[in-house]
Nucleic acid binder design. Structure first.
Lengths: 243, 243
DNA sequence: CGTCGGGTTGATAACTTTCAAATTTCGTGG
DNA sequence: CCACGAAATTTGAAAGTTATCAACCCGACG
């Protein structure tokens, strides 16, 4: 794959203008490509992990397991996202990571990462930015679960996914391919799978969006945004901020 | 106040051993002390803010407001915590900050902060650590709201507060002073104030803990930890990690 | 005193889960 | 290409948890 097509570059390009030098360094991080099978945990809680990953293809989710067997998915990562940045800096993973689909990712050693940051501060800024965006997403997720009802919450979640996918060229306002099951949605949204099903039906019947057969089709973007009180300021930049 | 008593230093000291040089730099950050009245927002969403703060005395909360007037408190900050680290790096606040009590805080300019980091990398590590811990707390909060029922959730929240307060010398395993109202709890836990009241009653009647008149008294620490599935690994270090 | 911000309680309503079962989809081997 | 079994989706009914509404109480404070 041409480096310029990489979803990471595409994403970072929304935040900062990357020089040829930046691109070269980024390319360097993309050696050591690895593939992971769906379903088999990539990282488990408590694991003393060595590497971070840049997701090139496929989806993963970060989650925590509770004693009673229920789980809470904290976040999904899609192409262009970092995996385990924090685990690298702090040596121990505080959550599990499961590939939702087969995944291709570049393994990044701690030293290479720090090196890249030292060489190209602009890159460091961009990555920090991305990390900060991820944090903002977790906060927004928290707000959703705490104060939005199931319908709003689901709509918000799918809109956020949509915005993120558009940013890496994997979706449009009309919809996107989505490998998640209703169980994934349930674990992410803090709902039961059965209720997720009903909510999806309602969204469909209101002609807001359809989620079927791995496809999300957005019928009425405006109405969804309004329903979910979705504010994409925290995801979308209106063009690069650093030039 | 003697600098050695500062809650920030006390907290960071749990993560890294601070040299005299580190302490000196930290002390430098503590000029420009300011006081804020309870209830009047310190930062509001969208504000283009300039400074971060180190909380010396009092509690604040970070929250988001929804259209229907409900709010979700994302986190509380207690003495020794940083305020608005992210807003400084990214220029715009994505949430509101309200003092729960009267607050004393040291204003820190972006430049001073970056300067301190450059001078004393160990300090930068410690602060990063603290920031990372905050992130882990938000994640744990998310899990609570998503997958724990009201009782477990409340217990977990109060245990976490307890652990944090102990770390800065403001509490013991037996309890702590807590200026929060039941409304604060409700907004943090994603519950209604009425239900919080009932939950607190139940915790009291089960002789687990009492929350009354601004005091949290922990009657049965073990049972609470078990009920809440509380794992303080993410808060407590078993002694400093960097020497 | 009267008001106001908390706290407390009961009754009812709303939302979501759980349980159970049927149906559809999808990957794999025949 | 079809059959089969497992996984995912769908639906109904009943139960459970939490929210809402409506009072009432109490102590602080002007």
């Amino acid at each position: 794959m041409n480096i310029a097509q990489s979803p990471l570059i595409r994403k970072l390009g929304n935040f900062v203008v990357l020089s040829d030098g930046d691109l070269k360094v980024l390319e360097g991080l993309h050696r050591r490509r690895r593939t992971f099978a769906a379903g088999r945990d990539l990282v488990h809680e408590g694991q003393v992990s060595a590497a971070a990953y840049i997701l090139a293809e496929g989806w993963v989710c970060s989650y925590k397991l509770l004693r009673d067997g229920s789980r809470q998915i904290v976040d999904f990562q899609i192409p262009g996202d970092f995996l385990g940045l924090r685990s690298v800096l702090f040596r121990t993973a505080d959550h599990n990571i499961e590939p939702v689909t087969e995944v291709e990712a570049s393994e990044v050693q701690e030293s290479d990462l720090l090196n890249a940051f030292n060489t190209t501060p602009r890159l460091a800024t961009a990555v920090l930015w991305a990390a900060s965006r991820d944090e903002a997403m977790v906060v927004e997720h928290l707000v959703s679960i705490g104060r939005r009802d199931a319908l709003e919450r689901t709509a918000h979640f799918l809109l956020e996914l949509s915005a993120r996918l558009i940013l890496v060229g994997r979706g449009t306002r009309a919809g996107f391919a989505c490998p998640l099951t209703q169980y994934h949605l349930a674990d992410a949204l803090g709902l039961s799978p059965v209720h997720v099903n009903r909510v999806l039906r309602e969204l469909r019947e209101c002609e807001l969006l359809t989620f079927q057969k791995g496809q999300v089709i957005i019928h009425n973007f405006e109405a969804l945004v309004d329903l979910a009180e979705f504010d994409h300021a925290y995801l979308d930049q209106d063009g690069p901020l650093l030039r």
